[in-house]
Design a protein around this nucleic acid. Structure first.
Lengths: 166, 166
DNA sequence: CGTGAAACCGTCGCCCC
DNA sequence: GGGGCGACGGTTTCACG
């Protein structure tokens, strides 16, 4: 059950823009089966509702010289909220950390990192990440290859689910 | 050292489109300091070179009803290439799996998954993921919250690095 | 890379249901 | 409430210098 009410046209708009964020509004309108003005109004509404957080070019980091991708599993020694927040703030400040997710279970955080080469990453790891206050354990794994990397929302699953509940 | 040669204008274009993939070409041209036609030619070239893989709206999956995000750490019993590929193919077919990265070390794969609720995820976990051929171990962790979720390329790091090597 | 021109698009006001 | 029509200004995208 979505937090906001969306009709099938809104969902189609979201699916199309997730697949191609640079599509023109008239093309989008054609695909969802309405004319351009109401289509644009819907897009603006979805943006303002926060359902569309933004649009980003998907850039090949490796081609740009970021040959190293690493996942880091981080455990903290204190899970008090103030300490969790302090660690999250550090992650926001470290440019090599691209994602930081707080998890349940024995791992506290998972970080997705990039670096131009291994030695840059290792410097970051020893001088910043493991050296940060409250960091108890860090396990890192290099990404060998990416088998799948899709945007967050599987609209097929959403539509299936709505069809069944109807 | 990037695989392709890019001048400072190309890098600025990439940085701007990563930050706002729906920016108009004239706005982009203004920001990078050239006129619109050559700017568009550069964008097309970057797209054709595969440096820009696409453009995607960044959609709030939780608001759409995908309240559960999970990281799964997967170990396989055989690391023969044919078995690795078979597992990757399975991941591509499972819509709840949004990312699949092959890692070095004791974990073989890390998966980022989404689901509408816990029971949907648990059904997937028991009926599909752990039941798949060659899967030896699966450890899952629920995402409690996202502290950072940025696109892949930290252009600040790239520019720093180029400045120093100059 | 820039200029100019033509086609196209984003956007608004208004009318309709 | 939402959708469509028409028009204006801005944008995309040529050909050419």
């Amino acid at each position: 059950m979505p937090t906001v009410k969306l009709d099938p046209i809104d969902r189609k708009i979201l699916a199309e823009l997730q697949a191609d964020g640079r599509m023109t509004n008239v093309e989008l309108a054609k695909r969802v089966g309405i004319s351009a003005p109401p289509c644009l109004r819907r897009v603006r509404t979805l943006e303002e509702a926060g359902l569309i957080r933004g649009y980003h070019a998907d850039i090949d980091a490796r081609e740009l010289g970021f040959e190293v991708q690493v996942f880091a599993l981080v455990g903290l020694s204190s899970q008090a909220e103030v300490d969790l927040s302090a660690f999250e703030q550090k992650c926001r400040e470290w440019p090599l950390v691209r994602e930081c997710h707080m998890l349940n279970g024995e791992i506290d955080f998972i970080l997705k990192c990039v670096a131009p080469d291994l030695s840059t990453f290792q410097s970051f790891l020893t001088e910043h990440l493991t050296a940060a206050p409250n960091v108890a354990s860090v396990k890192t794994s290099l990404v060998i290859r990416n088998a799948k990397d899709e945007p967050a929302v599987p609209f097929e699953v959403l539509e299936d689910r709505l069809a069944k509940s109807a």
